[in-house]
Design a protein around this nucleic acid. Structure first.
Length: 554
RNA sequence: UGGGGUGUCGCCAAGCGGUAAGGCAAUGGACUCUGACUCCAUUAUUCCGAGGUUCGAAUCCUCGCACCCCAGCCA
């Protein structure tokens, strides 16, 4: 299990602290209960960090439980990805991995118990009729004509439902509570429905499957969960959660608490929308580096530490909130600034020729892998007469405040010499295709004029030694901070990815998958875990560096 | 117009009757062979609004207002 430096307090920590202090619980047990119907996303990370973090910090434990009550939506593939994501994030369920479907037998017996107490009944109404009978927000519902069947008849019908005697949709088991309740969840909620489909975890044993409301609290009870933490939309379900616990001989009474779910600007978080992006081909898959899924963020280059730090900083509360994407980005920068070695890479190359530098000469310079961390060592970089610089680092006619290279101006080539632009070469269309310079031989690091100050320093890569490689420049998936409404897809950022052939320092040739590096003055990059190969690396841009010059404001 | 929630700086968020933490962003400055990093400074006489209780209120009471969730045999 990971250790976190500090944590801000929140209302759930306070509750746990009090429960422990008062002796209400001697140890706490939480759980993270994903439904295996999609990949985990950054919103789940908030829940994971909360539940596992509470258990870690208060010496309790946290279960990983698959809420697999609906076999038609759930798949084994998702179970595997969920386990991988939780582990990757840095949490360990320590053998406490369960499935709601593990409890189907117990749940079934308890359902018969409710029936025998006259607290549940089999209803023959159709789905549409049930909806009509439920009433509306302002009008009470009315009771089903089947609501007062005898215990014997209900038991018989329910058993026959289990045996698969009835077609899907023809009958349901309902809790007998109150059709006039102002809380819609209490208007005789469905407990079981008939589904003639095999289950990914328990196979073809069942023809009836429990609903979330009936399964969740009892699963918590079976596992001895003390604090069952979910998101706010389940708040109205709490009376029902408690009703089942009150009316069933459960071994333990867990308590449900709710917190507000994560909303992130420039992103969508609902599994429905994420699935649609995948199915419509707007992204390359659940793990596309632009997706807010944990697998996507991982491929993008986000570290588990940065995501945990993010979850720590956003806090946990009950008010609706929209966290700025900039905060998530700042969290990776902060982490990667510490750990990513530096390298030079030219994303959009422009050739620079040094006229007074001999054709056949090569200089080797020593470059620091991290400006503030000498322990990260140095590397040798080669310099020759022709180098590539960034197109953006040259302006024939510089605007005010531009301290890079311009005609007649000097600039330092990082880790090498100061050069002065003497001429430009253009193509027929007038585009600059080459920059001509002279260099000052005394200005290399350690040279007699090394201390000479010039306005700017730019990165470069030796043309003779450069390694051409694919680099994917990712940006936010959405152009609008709040992609909502029916036309949320129209908010997609058409420039969310640009693939370029960049010129890299040759030392990057054999970058390992997921190796992270800062391309100086550009941003943090990560060798793609799927497509990068030794000798032919492929880098994904995780995030740009902050840039107070161009103020991207994006 | 039923029920359940929430409203503290641009975005989060502490605060729980004793006189508005912190983070991110922003702004100004220092430093700099990354316009990065780091550093220093500035940013709520005010807590959705209006009354009230109190020596004292963001915190208690009353009445409003705004926003979110609930009418799946989804979770």
């Amino acid at each position: 299990m990971t250790t976190e430096p500090t944590h801000v307090t929140n209302f759930l920590r306070n509750i746990v602290e009090e429960d422990l202090k008062s002796g209400k619980h001697k140890t706490i047990v939480t759980r993270f209960p994903p439904e295996p119907n999609g990949y985990l996303h950054i919103g789940h990370a908030k829940s994971i960090c909360l539940n596992f973090g509470l258990a870690r910090d208060f010496g309790g434990r946290c279960h990983l439980r698959f809420d697999d009550t609906n076999p038609v939506k759930e798949e084994t593939e998702y179970i595997e990805s969920i386990k991988e994501s939780v582990s990757w994030l840095g949490f360990d369920w320590g053998g406490h991995m369960y499935y709601a479907s593990d409890y189907f037998d117990q749940l079934y017996m308890w359902a018969e118990h409710l029936i025998s107490q006259g607290k549940a009944y089999v209803d023959d109404l159709t789905a549409e009729q049930i909806r009509e009978y439920r009433g509306t927000l302002t009008e009470p519902g009315k009771e089903s004509p089947h609501r007062n069947r005898s215990v014997e008849e209900n038991l018989d019908l329910f058993r026959r439902m289990r045996e698969g005697e009835f077609p899907e949709g023809s009958k349901v088991l309902r809790a007998r509570i109150d059709m006039a309740s102002p809380n819609m969840n209490l208007r005789d909620p469905v407990m079981y429905r008939i589904i003639h489909a095999p289950h990914p975890h328990v196979g073809d044993k069942w023809r009836i499957y429990p609903m979330y409301d009936y399964a969740h609290g009892q699963s918590d009870a079976i596992e001895g969960i003390t604090h069952s933490i979910c998101t706010l939309e389940f708040e109205d379900h709490r009376p029902l959660y408690e009703w089942f616990l009150e009316n069933l001989p459960v071994p333990h009474k867990p308590r449900q608490y709710e917190f507000s779910r994560l909303n992130l600007t420039y992103a969508v978080m609902s599994k429905r929308k994420l699935l649609q992006l995948v199915q419509d081909g707007d992204v390359a898959g659940w793990d596309d580096p632009r997706m807010p899924t944990l697998m996507g963020l991982r491929r993008r280059g986000y570290t588990p530490e940065s995501i945990r730090s993010f979850c720590e900083r956003i806090g946990v509360g009950r008010s609706d909130s929209w966290i700025e994407m900039g905060l998530l980005e700042e969290c990776v920068r902060e982490d990667l600034n510490e750990r990513a070695p530096r390298a030079m890479a030219v994303l959009r190359p422009l050739k620079l020729v040094i006229e007074n530098y001999p054709e056949d000469r090569v200089d080797e310079f020593e470059a620091a892998n991290h400006p503030q961390k000498p322990e990260m060592g140095t590397r040798k970089i080669s310099f020759c007469r022709e180098v590539y610089i960034e197109q953006d680092d040259f302006m024939e006619e510089p605007v005010k405040g531009f301290h890079r290279l311009a005609l007649g101006q000097e600039v330092r080539l990082r880790n090498a010499y100061i050069v002065k632009c003497t001429d430009v070469v253009k193509d027929a269309a007038g585009n600059v295709t080459e920059v001509r310079c002279t260099y000052d031989p005394d200005t290399h690091t350690g040279g007699p004029a090394a201390g000479r100050k010039v306005k700017g320093t730019i990165h470069w890569v030796s043309a003779r030694h450069a390694l051409a490689a694919e680099v994917r420049l990712y940006d936010r998936l959405f152009a609008d901070p709040n992609p909502s409404g029916d036309d949320w897809k129209s908010c997609l950022n058409s420039k969310s990815v640009e693939v370029v052939t960049a010129m890299l320092e040759p030392g990057l040739r054999n970058a390992a998958p997921e190796e992270r590096v800062q391309f100086e003055r550009q941003g943090y990059f990560c060798a793609d875990m799927k497509d990068s190969r030794p000798g032919a690396p492929v880098f994904n841009r995780t995030v740009t560096l902050r840039d107070s010059w161009s103020k991207p404001g994006k």
